[in-house]
Design a protein around this nucleic acid. Structure first.
Lengths: 104, 104
DNA sequence: CCGCTTACCTAGATCGTCAAGGTAAATAAA
DNA sequence: TTTATTTACCTTGACGATCTAGGTAAGCGG
């Protein structure tokens, strides 16, 4: 779904700081295998978000002993996430309304 | 929300055949004023959908006595709508899962 | 006859996504 | 020791949907 990737990334970074690869895995896992983040979407998104000041990067070593870039959410990112989340829920609700669908 | 417009249009055309202007109004109404379809999105979408064979157009006269293009869903459009609908609901569910949100 | 609303249309730009590539390093296998 | 696999990052080019910001025309009310 277009326009939700940034929000999903911010979400999975709320708990811990993760590297790109880990973010992708986490989203896949949390969505019960329904969402899959392509690398060609992921990395541009991470750059975008870093440029906007929503996340911050630090080089480190992964759990599997490989160099990896770890991302964490900034205060601005947290704030942005909350509003994006609210907005998405409202839009999803509105769309469901038109479709005549209830999420019960 | 990106990628949902075609689906919403197909949805409001299930009941009656409407003209572009009417489609826009109907979506706005059904979504309780939350969704607003810009004309710059609407007309390209209608063209796209006609080209794909999902809808069919006929010139006529509107309720207010102005010339208007009325659209109706084709059989292929109906089929496409059902699958788009299912797909959207699944994606919305998956996204909600990641967000940790329930639509109850 | 003037302005408002209804109704349709388009050009240009932007933005997010994806496909399809590539690099590098650690580990496992042969 | 060489090779393959997995992990991890990155980029380029194209595409597709959307929005902004215009424009046209015709009916209706004042």
């Amino acid at each position: 779904m277009q326009g939700t990737l940034d929000m999903l990334i911010l979400r999975v970074l709320q708990k811990d700081s993760l590297h790109g690869w880990g973010i992708s895995q986490r989203i896949h896992l949390l969505s019960e295998d329904m969402l899959k983040v392509e690398e060609g979407s992921l990395y541009p998104a991470l750059y975008r978000m870093e440029r906007k000041g929503h996340i911050r990067a630090k080089w480190g070593i992964s759990e599997l002993n490989r160099k990896a870039k770890f991302y964490e959410v900034t205060a601005a990112g947290k704030k942005h996430y909350e509003s994006e989340r609210k907005n998405w829920i409202q839009l999803a609700r509105a769309t469901a309304l038109v479709l005549g669908h209830t999420f019960s």
